[in-house]
Design a protein around this nucleic acid. Structure first.
Length: 467
DNA sequence: CTATGGCACGGATT
DNA sequence: AATCCGTGCCATAG
């Protein structure tokens, strides 16, 4: 990556500029941070100038910016801005400003921090420290490695207290995380799932009473024990393996399907935050593009001066450094500018989706957006790829979800099925969807159903009866 | 005969 | 140029 940039810096300015901007555009906060840090330490011409904070709300400000939160007039358009929040993310020097997020106990691993950030808002300081301790004892599967009692002892709190915190943690994003066993994780997931859709009672019973048989797939034995036909056991087992994950730590983003196990960057900091001022839904909607460093990057003016006075072979090297530095700064600005325009447009197009949920997602394609913003479509692709957004409800979703043509259809489909009185067949569902303006083929309904882990119509009947 | 899942094709996306 | 996704056709199960 670095060599690439060195190489590009030698090329004509415009090409290099373009190429590096592209590269930067496709980086996530974490990657960008690395990039900036290496560049900073390799290039003496680059400097990081001191951060400024808004006098009223103490938010970190860009070098010449005014505070976007305090100074902006209340209006209908979401405010989009770039912010530097190094301490927010990376547990840097803690300051006494008013970010509750800064009170995070520092946890190194990715999964623990990810979970902690979700639950932090609903916990007191004391609870947070217990939560942090609990989260530091997770294995790679997201399961707890020490007994609850031990945590209670270590933190000098009651067992009940720890249990309560564990329950909150278990309901955070990789649902079931922080459970003491795969079994417990499954049960928690089942609980959460049952809030939104029908869940076979048999599944719960089987997990609770015959976990070992289940994990060994001894369906015949299960059928005997629960006095149900073996087919039904298989259905339930299918349901479980489709929808539940005994190892929450291994699950991929929100969608349990296509568990391509090679997802390393699953627990990531969001690249963009969308929220209301003070969490007040009637307030101004803010969109914050995260910069992983605080302060502003600029070319060191002293270095520029020094260049005038140096001579000889040093001069060439310095000059190169200087050029690379100014290029880097320029590219970074370009990147942020593009991101800003992009997200501005996306948010205003998908406002309803952000506010009211998946069903209101508009179908927009990257190409469409590229035309509107008058940039090349690959620019959009790069900017969207691998980025994540935190919504006002604190859910973290991939930015590409805003471009998912099928998400809204899927959620409407789920809605239809959850409200159905008798099990509807796929073709009936297809008609209903068409009536609601979603033109999808019967075959596609089947696919979506599978994606959402909903059983076929004739099996749904069997399930609801046994319930 | 009907409902569903598998395979493969074509267009969109990256 | 490679990959993903919606869809049509066909085989199979009920």
């Amino acid at each position: 990556m670095l060599q690439q940039i060195h190489y590009q810096a030698l090329r004509p300015q415009t090409t290099a500029h373009l190429a590096q901007t592209m590269t930067l555009l496709s980086l996530t906060v974490d990657e960008l941070r690395n990039q900036i840090e290496t560049e900073l330490s390799n290039n003496p011409a680059l400097e990081l100038v001191e951060e400024r904070r808004c006098p009223t709300c103490r938010r970190l400000l860009p070098k010449q910016g005014i505070c976007p939160v305090c100074s902006c007039p209340q209006n209908n358009e979401p405010v989009v801005f770039v912010s530097a929040r190094e301490d927010f993310y990376f547990g840097g020097e803690r300051t006494d400003d008013d970010y509750p997020e800064n009170d995070f106990p520092v946890v190194e691993d990715k999964l623990p921090t990810y979970v902690l950030r979700q639950v932090a808002s609903e916990l007191t300081r004391e609870e947070l420290s217990v939560a942090a301790y609990l989260l530091t004892h997770l294995d790679d599967d997201g399961l707890l490695t020490v007994p609850l009692a031990e945590i209670a002892r270590y933190c000098h709190v009651s067992l009940l207290f720890v249990q309560r915190i564990q329950q909150i943690i278990q309901r955070a994003d990789p649902i079931g995380v922080g459970s003491t066993s795969p079994q417990e994780a499954l049960l928690v997931q089942l609980d959460v799932l049952s809030e939104s859709r029908k869940v076979p009672q048999l599944a719960r019973d089987m997990i609770m009473e015959a976990m070992n048989l289940l994990s060994r797939r001894q369906y015949a034995e299960l059928a005997r024990q629960f006095h149900v036909p073996i087919r039904q056991v298989q259905q339930v087992a299918h349901f479980i393996s489709e929808n539940l994950n005994p190892f929450p730590g291994r699950s991929s983003w929100g969608d349990g399907r296509q568990s391509n196990g090679s997802r390393t960057n699953v627990y990531r900091h969001p690249d963009i935050l969308i929220y209301y001022v003070n969490d007040d839904p009637s307030g101004q909607l803010m969109v914050e593009i995260i910069m992983p460093i605080s302060g502003t990057l600029q070319v060191n003016p002293l270095f520029r001066q020094a260049l005038q006075q140096t001579s000889g072979e040093n001069r060439e090297a310095c000059k190169e450094d200087l050029e690379r530095a100014s290029l880097f700064v320029k590219c970074l600005q370009q990147r942020n500018h593009t991101m800003k325009r992009l997200i501005q447009r996306v948010v205003s197009l998908q406002r309803d989706f952000i506010l009211y949920g998946e069903e209101h997602l508009n179908s927009i394609t990257r190409v469409q957006l590229a035309r509107e913003l008058d940039v090349h479509e690959s620019t959009i692709s790069r900017a969207v790829a691998n980025k994540t957004v935190q919504l006002p409800n604190r859910k973290i979703i991939p930015l590409s979800a805003f471009f998912d043509r099928s998400l809204n259809v899927r959620s409407v489909l789920c809605d239809l099925i959850s409200k159905e009185t008798k099990p509807l067949s796929d073709s009936e569902l297809a008609e209903l969807l068409a009536a609601r303006g979603f033109q999808v083929a019967r075959r596609t309904v089947a696919k979506y159903r599978a994606m959402e882990g909903i059983l076929p119509a004739h099996l749904r009947r069997a399930v609801s009866i046994s319930k």
